[in-house]
């Protein structure tokens, strides 16, 4: 078999050679630095390579969107980040952004326009759905999911915040697995507990951790795979599974990782 080589062009490379990518892949801080979520970034990049999408990343020129600062109440810091990012994005004449982080997605899509940054912003689950619908991504050649039970955890900033409920589910449907739903889903989905800056601090005193409450619900479906579409949900759900001592039998994956597995990438 031919050894595949995956490439990750940067906007700077593209600009230097006078090219413009079809999409900018906004990796996000978790996708760049979090060991677990880097694997999601890599899975998505492999899919993009495999399909032959002309994409680029900002690489070292990317910076936090400012979302956690804004939700924690630090509007100054948020706007400093936003303005700097918008200067970079507008400098490269970026039109279309795809990101694997619902928080980046929400901020870039809904909050940057008022500060002068207007782009078409798509979550990677929506982008994958488009590729599957067009027949450009076929789940074949890799691991089979037939008969496996998968449950999907809605991310607040993808679901309630932006009403993206179907795209990740349709991506999972392409796996031909058995999609089982939790009790609280879609608009009623229960948060993983990370949003609003909670990820960056200890929870306030209570009787239980939110991620444990959510993981119990996920485990109750009998699924062996919890699919997520957000880096923070990824950590919270993985920690919850560990808390329940189920990490041997239950795995947490991002939707793009499952597609990449199905394609043997």
């Amino acid at each position: 078999m031919l050894e595949k080589t995956y490439t990750v062009p940067t906007m700077a490379d593209m600009a230097a050679s006078g090219e413009e990518p079809e999409i900018l892949f906004w990796v996000g801080c978790a996708g760049s630095f979090d060991d677990r979520y880097k694997r999601v970034t890599i899975a998505f990049v492999r899919i993009l390579n495999h399909v032959g999408i002309k994409f680029a990343v900002l690489g070292p020129e990317e910076a936090c969107t400012g979302d956690p600062a804004r939700r924690a109440g630090n509007e100054f810091l948020f706007q400093m980040q936003a303005m700097a990012n918008i200067q970079v994005l507008n400098g490269y004449n970026v039109k279309k952004i795809v990101t694997a982080c619902p928080h980046c997605f929400n901020t870039l899509k809904n909050e940057y326009p008022e500060l002068g940054g207007t782009y078409e912003v798509i979550h990677h689950s929506q982008f994958l759905q488009g590729l599957i619908d067009e027949g450009r991504v076929k789940v074949e050649g890799g691991q089979s999911f037939k008969g496996r039970k998968i449950t999907f955890h809605d991310s607040c900033y993808l679901g309630r915040a932006n009403k993206v409920y179907e795209a990740p589910r349709e991506v999972l449907a392409a796996l031909d697995a058995d999609l089982v739903e939790m009790k609280r889903v879609r608009a009623n989905g229960l948060c993983c507990g990370a949003g609003g800056g909670q990820y960056f601090k200890e929870p306030e005193p209570g009787t239980k951790d939110v991620n444990v409450e959510r993981v119990e619900e996920a485990l109750a479906t009998g699924a062996d795979t919890i699919a997520v579409a957000c880096p923070f949900c990824m950590t919270m759900m993985s920690d919850g599974v560990k808390n329940k001592n189920r990490e041997d039998s239950v795995r947490v994956y991002d939707v793009s990782e499952l597609i990449a597995q199905g394609q043997g990438l």
Partner: peptide, 25 residues
């Protein structure tokens, strides 16, 4: 949260990683 703010301000990420390592993945 103050630590997170200062990381964003200085390292362009909510964690204490060097911005130059951002593309190492």
């Amino acid at each position: 949260w103050n630590a997170m703010f200062s990381n964003i301000e200085n390292n362009m990420a909510p964690w204490k990683f060097s911005p130059s390592d951002r593309f190492n993945w």
